[in-house]
Design a binder for these strands. Structure first.
Lengths: 240, 240
DNA sequence: TCTTTTAATTGCTATAATAGCAATATGAAA
DNA sequence: TTTCATATTGCTATTATAGCAATTAAAAGA
């Protein structure tokens, strides 16, 4: 982890954390919820939300809860431009459709994975796969496990302090077991309720995203798919 | 414009402005450039950039200039999820391809328009149109003019203070002439070097984006296209 | 409809962060 | 190697902030 600068701008750090929580919440959220989720003092959360509201990045909805405001469209597009990941990754991910598996690209923030691309059994064209932007618990996602495995144990414990852990993992102990396996293997592997596997590898060093193939029969040789995923990582990384 | 809250978080406001400038810059930028562009004190810009660096949202490149860091991918995906605009707009924009015109969706920030979607003469499928994420001077864009027309004259003057104004507009006086026309018409109309028209309307109230059709022959009846654009706006607005 | 409960919002002020000047350090350019 | 331009940091007076508690505003319940 990078060293904290001598005079960090704490309003920027905390403010962005609050904004992120807004963006990945499926419904409007209360000051109280954010305060508890992020461990921030209630008044501070309120002041941040009112500042985001002023900037157009949040707005107060019914029941005095907050949701993203119209300014989020502007920030989203600007961030996508600055990121350039969509442009680089799309052709590579589209190429993976030939395997008829589910393809995903996602990122981790705290205990959640956000998907930029998710192509269920490769059935969709790119814009449907992109349009399936969604958030899932990190513990229930092979990408989530892969990316959590890059964090320090203490940081992981802090993230999950006071949080429930989603099925199928169910406990912090089980989560760590999966994380340790991922560290050892260099990829993560999760089996779903149907007995199929989801395999994920990390993108970037240090990792900022993960890509996954899932729907793999559990008796198949997974080394083939790990190789395919790692080649995709190399291609995405190489594209200008 | 919304009222400034009693205790705004100034680090969040200024910090996000700096981040935006990073995201839309085609190459790494210096502290000095950002200071002059945004009118911020140099040391403050440096502190903000160091904080963004710490957060992973910026990193220091060669020649001590800054560019977006790997964390921008995470913020980009989260913002896109919180925005939901891509999912809503894509089907509507794809429908417009039947007119064989150039289709665009973009947003305004300061003197720049950022395009989420830009489909040159409708030739591309969605993912190429999305992948053409780019930034252009607002004054050279029909979407830019349409969105600038929503701002107060004083705010526009402040944005362009000390900035050069891109061709074909060329001067602040010409820019205001186009803006006044857009306010009067309820849409903006720009003619390019080839004598074709670009028409844009605003999306959202207050507007947060614009959509445009361009490559229209200057002798065509534009009311047809204005109607089409306004219908598209209604469709995008209506989709959940 | 009225009362109670919950939580957002704001007043207030001691504390800590910050703004920003100027000095220093670091690369880039000559 | 020297010079120049700009990033970075030291320093401190000033201002913003943190956060408690009071007040206000909804939501929920009777």
């Amino acid at each position: 982890m990078k060293k904290l600068p001598a005079q960090p701008v704490s309003g920027l750090m905390d403010g962005l954390e609050v904004l992120r929580e807004l963006t990945i919440s499926a419904s409007p959220v209360s000051c109280k919820h954010i305060s508890e989720k992020l461990g921030f003092e209630l008044t501070r959360v309120n002041r941040i939300l009112k500042t985001l509201d002023y900037m157009g990045l949040a707005c107060r909805g019914p029941s005095r809860r907050y949701l993203p405001g119209p300014g989020i469209h502007v920030l989203a597009i600007q961030s996508m431009i600055g990121s350039g990941l969509l442009k680089r990754a799309l052709p590579v991910l589209e190429e993976l459709r030939k395997y008829k598996l589910t393809i995903a690209l996602g990122v981790l923030w705290r205990d959640s994975v956000s998907y930029l691309y998710h192509n269920d059994l490769s059935r969709f064209n790119a814009y449907d796969a992109i349009g399936r932007l969604a958030v899932h618990p990190a513990g229930a996602s092979s990408i989530g496990i892969a990316l959590l495995s890059e964090l320090e144990d203490s940081e992981i414990r802090q993230i999950y302090e006071g949080q429930e852990i989603a099925q199928p993992i169910g406990s912090l102990e089980s989560l760590f077991k999966e994380i340790y396996k991922s560290r050892e293997n260099g990829f993560s592997s999760i089996m779903n309720a149907k007995g199929n596997l989801s395999l994920a590898v990390k993108l970037g060093n240090p990792a900022y995203a993960g890509i996954a193939l899932s729907g793999i029969a559990s008796d198949e040789d997974i080394t083939k798919y790990i190789k395919i995923l790692n080649e995709s990582v190399d291609k995405i990384g190489a594209v200008k």
